[in-house]
Amino acid sequence: AQASVVANQLIPINTRLTLVMMRSEVVTPVGIPAEDIPALVSMQVNRAVPLGTTLMPDMVKGYA
């Protein structure tokens, strides 16, 4: 199954992502693919992302 990017902590709005904030997990619905984690580093989220939330393309500025 495809692993997705999941928030490893609460990520406040406009925060630049770092590796420690993200983990890969097989979840439904599928979000951003886990292999994109390196590309997500330093991108900003456009909303607060609670712990355990799957990151979707529309949550990350410049990803989609």
Rank of each mutant, 00 (worst) to 15 (best):
P29G: 03
M56I: 12
K61V: 15
T54F: 02
I13C: 14
A7R: 01
I37M: 13
R16H: 15
V26K: 04
M21P: 02
T15V: 10
M59P: 00
V26L: 13
G31F: 02
L40P: 00
G52T: 02
A1F: 14
L51S: 12
V27G: 03
P12Y: 09
T15L: 04
L55V: 11
R23H: 08
M22I: 12
A7D: 01
A34W: 09
L40A: 00
S24M: 07
V41E: 11
I11M: 05
A39S: 11
V30R: 03
V45P: 02
L17T: 00
L40F: 02
Q44V: 08
P29I: 10
A48L: 09
P50A: 12
P38A: 06
A34H: 09
S4H: 02
V5N: 02
R23P: 02
Q9V: 13
L40I: 15
L51Y: 13
T15P: 01
A1W: 06
V5E: 01
Q2A: 11
M56A: 06
M21N: 11
P12S: 11
A34G: 14
V30M: 11
P57D: 09
I11S: 00
Q44N: 07
L19P: 14
P29F: 03
A34Y: 08
Q2G: 15
I11Y: 00
V27P: 01
A64T: 15
E25F: 06
T15D: 05
T54V: 10
P33C: 09
A3V: 07
A3D: 08
V49D: 01
V27A: 06
L17Y: 00
L17A: 00
L40E: 00
S42W: 07
V60E: 02
A7L: 03
Y63P: 04
Q2N: 13
A48V: 14
P12N: 09
A1V: 13
V49F: 03
P33N: 06
Q44K: 07
V6M: 10
V45Y: 00
N8Q: 10
K61R: 15
P50H: 08
L17K: 00
A1P: 11
L10T: 13
L17D: 02
E25T: 06
I32S: 00
L17I: 14
T15C: 04
A7N: 02
V49I: 10
M22E: 02
N14S: 14
E35A: 10
A39T: 15
M56N: 07
P38E: 10
V20H: 14
V41P: 02
T53Q: 12
S24W: 07
V26Y: 06
T18S: 12
P38C: 06
G31T: 00
R23W: 04
A48T: 14
V6F: 01
P38D: 08
P33V: 15
I13G: 14
N8D: 13
M56R: 10
T28Y: 11
V49C: 04
V41I: 14
V41R: 07
V30T: 09
A3L: 13
V60H: 01
L17V: 03
M59G: 03
